[in-house]
Design a protein around this nucleic acid. Structure first.
Lengths: 196, 196
DNA sequence: CAAAAATAAACGAACGTTCTTTTATTTAAA
DNA sequence: TTTAAATAAAAGAACGTTCGTTTATTTTTG
């Protein structure tokens, strides 16, 4: 029996991500991917059922990697302000350190392929829900639906990251670099909105 | 001389948008598009230079349509709270009335194709900048960089729209429908963050 | 040796685009 | 007012290429 070479799987995975980030899903062809990963086209089909399965597995693994990074040093029992700050810093750090992975995720999330993905993430979602209901119970956070909370709490951060990654802010505004003071400034405003 | 049939151009345009929304950029093939639009493949190349040009023109026209809708009943000289409210209602109405066009725009914005697009939008951007600097001068808005302003002011709205369009809110939360009270509630929090 | 990994080669289908021809419409001479 | 030249739109078939995937075979390793 010959064992699978996980390095090969990894190479396929990483090159696929690179290609998607560079040229979109359009740009991901199995032939080109095989060449880039130093592997025969048929080999890809040992590790992945087909092209769609490859993309979906990629997305699944990146989702886990991302939510792990998000929950670092985070505890749902934390006080609201502290917990939100930890999450902001975690998310910002991950985005800035792994712009490619981030861009892949965003591309995936906004593509029809995303619908074929079975949402998982129970541990992550559970942690978030606990955190929010704790905060409301302690009157550290105004009571609101989870979606409204999420919109106010995190959408601004990701929008800043998009400005940063696009290399430019508002069209015509020139370059925009996301710095720690800028993150702090925005977080303060978000807290102002969310705290009673 | 035979005149161009603008109905044909329109049919190609609309079907292309539908196909992209349904199956992503991957799903847009010139043959299938021609068939869907009731036209010969060669005809497409009379109206558009090539596949990429078709997508880029589509994006350009949708951008204009969207910013026009956004600026309806809006005047940069408005007071901050009123102006922001008008924009929120305009944007929300457009998103809810044209979910397909909205989804196309979001898909485009998060794809590598977006980089090949030359930003235009001067009238729109000028109006927004005037509005913001007016608001700051009148002390109706805390002073902050445009990108930070934008992140707080509009990212939450678009996140709500995404929840709404995805048919579900937070993963595992079940369905989420964007209603006017919900929009108002979120806008109030945004205003709380932005007003001095 | 057995069994799975890995490959090269090949498959038909589909791709984006172009070539050639036909059709529709305008222009202007008769 | 008729008719024919001129022109661009439109169509259909075809181009060579590349696509995703599979088959037949060889290589590697437990």
């Amino acid at each position: 029996m010959r064992l699978r070479d996980e390095n090969k799987r990894f190479a396929i995975r990483e090159k696929a991500l690179e290609m998607i980030v560079k040229d979109g899903f359009d740009g991901l062809s199995m032939h080109k991917l095989a060449k880039a990963a130093g592997v025969s086209p048929a080999t890809i089909y040992i590790y992945f059922k087909d092209r769609e399965d490859l993309i979906l597995q990629l997305y699944f693994e990146e989702s886990i990697r991302m939510s792990d990074a998000t929950l670092k040093n985070f505890d749902p029992e934390m006080h609201f302000e502290e917990g939100l700050r930890v999450q902001w810093l975690n998310r910002a750090a991950y985005c800035l350190q792994h712009p490619q992975r981030m861009y892949f995720m965003e591309q995936m999330r906004h593509s029809p392929l995303h619908d074929k993905f079975r949402e998982f993430g129970t541990p992550f979602v559970v942690a978030m829900k606990t955190f929010v209901s704790n905060a409301i119970r302690r009157k550290e956070l105004v009571p609101l639906p989870v979606e409204v909370y999420w919109s106010i709490a995190f959408a601004p951060l990701y929008q800043l990251v998009k400005f940063h990654m696009g290399g430019k802010g508002m069209p015509g505004t020139g370059n925009f670099e996301l710095s720690e003071p800028l993150i702090d400034q925005t977080l303060e405003l978000v807290l102002k909105a969310l705290k009673p």
